[in-house]
Write a protein that binds this DNA or RNA. Structure first.
Length: 591
DNA sequence: TCTATATCACCC
DNA sequence: AAACGGGTGATATAGA
């Protein structure tokens, strides 16, 4: 046991610092089913090994003086939860710490436990051995005595590996109470997220199964209806050569990529369909087909969709769940499959204009904050810039508002006038003019943003208020995108706000089903949903204030869905869902 | 027939 | 050179 790690944890007042690891079987859409656990204390050297039924009782005192250390701790938290153990109160997650320590430079080896060991030149078991043991674990029981010994040994080897990682990663964290407190904050989120992963999202599996069953018929019907006039599809596939021949036969000129291939993106189709109306049905078909993806949403026996939420996956510290297995990943209509079960309700609560609030608060731009607080930052900008009179409204000046909205949203990403005009249809000169007005109106924000960019370009780290960082040291040939650097603080603080809110909500016992970057999905009994939603909104506003500073609270919007209704987004998903349902009924009647 | 690459679409 | 940030994933085609 490393002397310095023991001292480090002792210094922060811990009785034990358990490096803990479970082996578990997890079927798609299910909670993990742990079958063994090894824990070693970095302070006392004590070791605990549990197998099978021995997991029925939690061997730990889960109080504030017991620290748990793991690599990718949401898995351990999910195992605690699945076993009915009390939740760990203090967690240190070396995965999060490794991601942080290498954010920007990256690691040549990846993000996993072995990658971290290799990165620091520490001994590790071979990747093949690890894969073999993982396969043995996934296979599920029963295991022979011999297999059981090797699985426990393997589990212990991960526990030891985590202990070896302490030296470099505690070094990266730093010794001060503040440094360590921030690491515990990340660990706290990992613990909460394990619960969220276990909660899952209630799904109308009956409808989902009907759709899956008739999926190919739905696709076929959709395609054949349009394609009989074109003859471009083959077995559900768009054949470019056939499309090219069609264009040639019909004398339709078509834009090409620099490679000579046809430009086939949605925007090109939209433009072309305006001129050559015969193209329009094909455009609609391609657009619809682009939204047709239904595989990969895994649902457990309790009709709840579960997937890894992959915290700290991105440079900004956002979660990065697989977009095919996370129901909020594919196109919006898929969310209509979300449905609370009998007696229950859900609510989708999101921060309104979160990144604008962050930009305003952190840059200390009083005018921008005023614009945010007005409730309509786009209209407020138009007024502050003198484009419309002070008494103008959304209804009196819709066009100016729309233009300003495009500017205000695009500027978060460092958008240039050219693409701004291409995107929003505003003339390029108008876009340029509005951009300059924005820079003149929100001088403080722009000075702050550009200072951040310069800071990072000089090889210095950018950091959020709670210590998520990115660092591009000089001399490593790293390619930096100034627009990314401009946006980084907004997105990173948004992620931080979300982590805080999830931690607090879960610890209060609210049932959080999913984080969606700037939104949370919560569930409750129908009779409690309003109260729980109100409480969550309060927590989210509190979290925003912790990040943005006293008095700077970010508003939230909430949309409640009660059984027997299904989740719905009238603006974006409803139309496509109705088309799919029509096709489904047709397919079911064809039989 | 399989794999790598480019392109595109979706999400916040 | 490009000029819209952070992502994941499917698909169509070219190439081995």
């Amino acid at each position: 046991m490393s002397e310095s790690a023991a001292e480090y944890f002792g210094q922060h007042g811990f009785r034990h610092a358990w490096s803990v690891d479970f082996e578990f079987v997890v079927l798609p859409g299910h909670k993990p089913n742990p079958f063994c656990m090894v824990a070693k204390c970095a302070i006392t050297g004590k070791t605990i090994k549990l197998w099978g039924d021995e997991l029925n009782h939690c061997p730990f005192a889960c109080d504030d003086n017991e620290l748990f250390i793991a690599y990718y701790a949401c898995a351990e938290s999910a195992c605690f939860d699945a076993l009915g153990w009390p939740q760990p109160r203090r967690m240190l997650d070396l995965y999060a710490e490794f991601r942080l320590a290498t954010n920007g430079v990256g690691s040549n080896f990846g993000k996993g436990l072995i990658a971290a060991l290799l990165h620091y030149g520490l001994p590790t078991i071979g990747g093949e051995e690890k894969d073999a043991m993982r396969a043995l674990a996934i296979r599920g029981g029963p295991w022979s005595d011999e297999e059981r010994v090797s699985l426990l040994d393997y589990c212990e080897s991960d526990v030891d590996a985590v202990l070896r990682l302490l030296e470099p990663l505690l070094g990266a964290i730093g010794r001060s109470g503040e440094d360590f407190g921030r690491a515990l904050l990340r660990g706290r989120y990992m613990a909460a997220l394990g619960i969220v992963e276990n909660n899952g999202i209630p799904i109308d599996t009956e409808l989902q199964n009907r759709m899956i069953h008739h999926w190919s018929a739905i696709m076929q019907n959709l395609i054949s209806e349009v394609d009989e006039d074109f003859g471009i599809y083959d077995n559900g596939r768009f054949v470019q050569a056939r499309f090219e021949a069609y264009l040639y036969d019909n004398n339709i000129p078509w834009p090409r990529l620099y490679t000579g291939r046809l430009k086939l993106d949605d925007e090109t189709f939209r433009q072309q369909a305006k001129v050559y109306s015969s193209i329009a049905p094909l455009h609609q078909l391609r657009h619809a087909l682009g939204q047709l993806r239904l595989n990969g949403i895994n649902v457990g026996p309790d009709n709840r969709s579960r997937t890894m939420l992959s915290p700290f996956g991105s440079k900004t510290g956002r979660n990065q769940p697989s977009t095919s297995s996370f129901i909020f990943g594919p196109s919006v209509w898929i969310r209509n499959l979300i449905k609370p079960e009998k007696g229950r309700a859900i609510a989708y609560v999101d921060w309104s204009s979160q990144e604008i609030a962050i930009a305003a608060a952190l840059s200390n731009d009083a005018l921008l904050w005023e614009a945010y607080e007005s409730g309509d930052p786009y209209l407020a900008f138009a007024k502050q810039a003198g484009i419309i009179p002070p008494d103008a409204t959304k209804d009196s000046h819709p066009e100016a508002r729309q233009q300003c909205k495009a500017i205000v949203l695009g500027l978060n990403y460092g958008m240039m006038p050219q693409s701004m005009s291409a995107q929003s249809g505003v003339h390029i000169e108008r876009a340029r003019q509005l951009l300059n007005l924005h820079k003149a109106t929100y001088r403080t924000f722009w000075a702050w943003g550009e200072a951040n960019v310069d800071h990072a370009l000089m090889g210095l780290p950018l950091s959020t208020v709670f210590g998520w960082r990115i660092h591009f040291p000089h001399g490593r040939g790293l390619e930096l995108n100034p627009r990314s650097l401009l946006n980084w603080p907004m997105q990173s603080h948004g992620a931080e706000m979300m982590r805080l809110a999830v931690s607090m909500a879960v610890e209060e016992g609210l049932v959080i089903c999913a984080p969606v970057h700037d939104a949370l999905l919560i569930e409750a009994p129908i009779d409690d949903i309003e109260q729980h939603t109100a409480r969550l909104s309060e927590i989210m506003a509190d979290a925003s204030e912790m990040v943005l500073g006293a008095g700077k609270r970010c508003r939230t919007d909430a949309k409640i869905t009660r059984y027997p209704d299904r989740f719905e987004d009238e603006q974006r998903g409803a139309h496509m869902f109705s088309i799919i349902m029509k096709l489904l009924h047709r397919a079911e009647n064809q039989k």
